[in-house]
């Protein structure tokens, strides 16, 4: 190696070291920006000297008063509502989404393309529009206000077949030759699904359950329509949102933070363990569509 090239290599290495340091600093800054709001929420949930919004982060007086106050409100009821709705939706929606995406990925039938195109067009209508009528219908059935939970589950689950894209993208990557081999051996279509495809699809099943759970867990719009005016039928999003209106914020702001921590905690823990599957679902299926 000549002296000149050696020098150039040294220079390159030095410049790479500089740029890598810069990137490390940048990533640290990014992480701080991304985490700060969450750190603030946790800190403020332990602030007891003032229950409204304030301009500082570190509480002057610490205490768990906000959490104990939380349990004297309707919050436990909202929490239960949300939890039941999310759990039921996670199970039912997963079944429906998997049925839909498996069929559209595996079978070639005459109506397949028109069906997919039709659903694409349906998706262009703002879904909120249909809430007006669904609210009236559910009200006639007695599934709103205090009985909101079954109504919510029905609404979340019923149209979930439209969200088949990600898992279809996953099923598309499982070779068709597996199915064909099984068919030659005399397996029915149903048997192929249970015995061959499902065992191979653990990541996408978990991804679907996870996203199906998180949807209702943080849903605001539909829950707002259906709970309309009653406290007992609210979910956490609607309940906590109402605490931040002008009349209540000075009294309920820190309680909102405490509630937020309790709502975020289970999903975050769930995420920590299932992160791998979520990442796989997003990177594998979301773009292929």
């Amino acid at each position: 190696m000549s002296e000149a090239t050696a020098k150039r290599h040294m220079g390159l290495r030095a410049s790479r070291a500089v740029s890598n340091t810069l990137i490390h600093v940048l990533l640290i800054v990014i992480s701080i920006i991304w985490l700060i709001p969450f750190v603030c929420i946790v800190l403020q949930s332990f602030r007891v000297e003032n229950t409204g919004p304030v301009g500082y982060i570190i509480p002057h007086q610490w205490g768990t008063g906000n959490y104990t106050r939380l349990f004297q409100t309707d919050f436990p009821r909202w929490y239960t509502n949300t939890f039941i709705a999310a759990l039921a939706t996670a199970v039912l929606q997963t079944v429906i989404v998997l049925c839909m995406s498996y069929t559209l990925s595996r079978f070639r039938f005459k109506m397949r393309q028109p069906l997919m195109r039709f659903m694409l067009i349906l998706g262009m209508f703002p879904g909120m529009l249909s809430m007006i009528i669904l609210y009236r219908v559910l009200k006639d059935l007695g599934l709103t206000q205090a009985n909101a939970v079954p109504g919510l589950i029905l609404v979340y689950v019923a149209s979930s077949g439209m969200g088949y894209y990600v898992s279809k993208g996953f099923f598309d990557t499982i070779p068709m030759s597996l199915d064909e081999a099984a068919r030659v051996d005399g397996a029915t279509r149903a048997k192929i699904l249970y015995k061959i495809i499902l065992p191979l699809s653990k990541p996408i099943v978990i991804y679907t359950i996870l996203t199906a759970f998180m949807g209702p867990w943080g849903d605001y719009v539909f829950a707002r329509y259906i709970a309309f005016g009653t406290s007992a039928g609210k979910n956490v999003a609607v309940g906590l949102y109402d605490w931040l209106n002008k009349d209540q914020i000075s009294n309920c702001y820190t309680m909102f933070c405490a509630g937020g921590v309790l709502v975020a905690l289970p999903v975050t823990i769930l995420f920590l363990f299932l992160q791998k599957y979520y990442v796989e679902g997003v990177t594998g299926g979301a773009v292929k569509g």
Binding site: L27, S31, P37, F38, G218, G260, V263, V267, Q275, Y278
Partner: peptide, 22 residues
């Protein structure tokens, strides 16, 4: 780094957005 960013997805938007708005 990835885990830090991914975890922020887990927190329901109504909490983070409402809080950031305040």
């Amino acid at each position: 780094w990835r885990t830090i960013l991914v975890l922020t997805i887990a927190i329901p938007q109504f909490i983070s957005l409402l809080y950031v708005s305040k």
